[in-house]
Simulated scan of single mutants.
Amino acid sequence: MDEHLYIVTYDIRDPKRWRRIFRIMNGYGEWLQLSVFQCRMNRRRHAELIALLDGLIHHADDHVVLMDVGPADKVAPHITSLGRNFTPIERASVIV
């Protein structure tokens, strides 16, 4: 399915906008920490997320970073995690 693993982090100044972004991100990935998500997405979902976020943020005040870690099935991220365990998001079936 050609999915990539992304780490998405954001700094949103307005608490109301921050909550909207957080709710959107919950639909695209797994929450890791305050304002940090890991997402497993194909190109279409990636473009869709960028369009959604681009329409919601205030470009002069807010900042969103999407880091492409690599192909989701092939990437073995080298991560140092202190405290809670970090586990790269696994591919899961979605039943509709």
Rank of each mutant, 00 (worst) to 15 (best):
H78M: 08
H78A: 10
S81V: 04
R44Q: 12
G55C: 08
R23W: 06
T80N: 00
L5C: 08
P71Q: 13
R91Y: 00
I24Q: 10
V8T: 13
A47D: 00
G70A: 07
I50T: 06
K74R: 13
R43G: 09
R91N: 14
A76Q: 14
F86H: 06
F22P: 08
L82Y: 00
E90T: 14
I21N: 09
V65E: 09
V96T: 03
D2T: 08
N85K: 06
E48S: 09
D54V: 02
E48I: 02
H59T: 07
R44I: 10
I24K: 14
R91M: 12
P77E: 01
A47N: 07
T80V: 10
D73H: 05
H59V: 07
D68S: 05
G83D: 12
V75M: 08
M67S: 12
V94M: 12
M1R: 12
M25G: 03
H78Q: 13
T9S: 15
E90P: 00
I89A: 15
E48H: 13
M41S: 06
R19G: 05
V8Q: 11
W31T: 01
G83I: 09
A51S: 10
I21Y: 03
Y28A: 04
K16F: 00
L32G: 10
N42Q: 06
D14H: 00
S93A: 14
G29A: 02
H46A: 09
V65L: 15
Y6W: 12
R13F: 05
Y10F: 12
A60L: 06
I95D: 14
C39V: 02
I12N: 07
R43K: 13
I7A: 13
H4K: 15
F37L: 01
D68R: 15
M41G: 08
A72N: 06
W31H: 10
T9Q: 15
M25F: 07
A92L: 05
L5T: 09
M25V: 01
F86D: 12
H46N: 07
Y10A: 05
P88F: 00
A76H: 08
C39I: 02
P15R: 00
I12R: 03
G27V: 00
A47E: 03
R45L: 11
Q33K: 10
V8P: 06
L32A: 01
E90G: 13
D73M: 09
N85T: 15
P77F: 01
A51V: 02
V65D: 07
M25A: 03
H59G: 10
A92S: 13
G27L: 01
D2E: 13
H58S: 09
A92P: 00
A72M: 05
C39G: 04
V65H: 14
E3T: 12
N26R: 11
R40V: 03
L34Y: 14
R45N: 09
P88G: 11
D11R: 09
M25D: 04
E30N: 10
V64P: 08
D54G: 15
L52H: 08
G70S: 09
R44F: 10
L56N: 06
L66C: 09
I50W: 08
M25Q: 02
L52Q: 14
Q33V: 02
R20K: 15
V75R: 11
D68T: 04
R17Q: 06
M41Q: 07
I95S: 09
R44H: 08
M41F: 10
M41N: 04
R44T: 05
I7T: 11
H58N: 15
H63V: 08
Q38H: 03
V94A: 12
E90A: 15
T9M: 15
V36F: 00
M41A: 14
N85C: 08
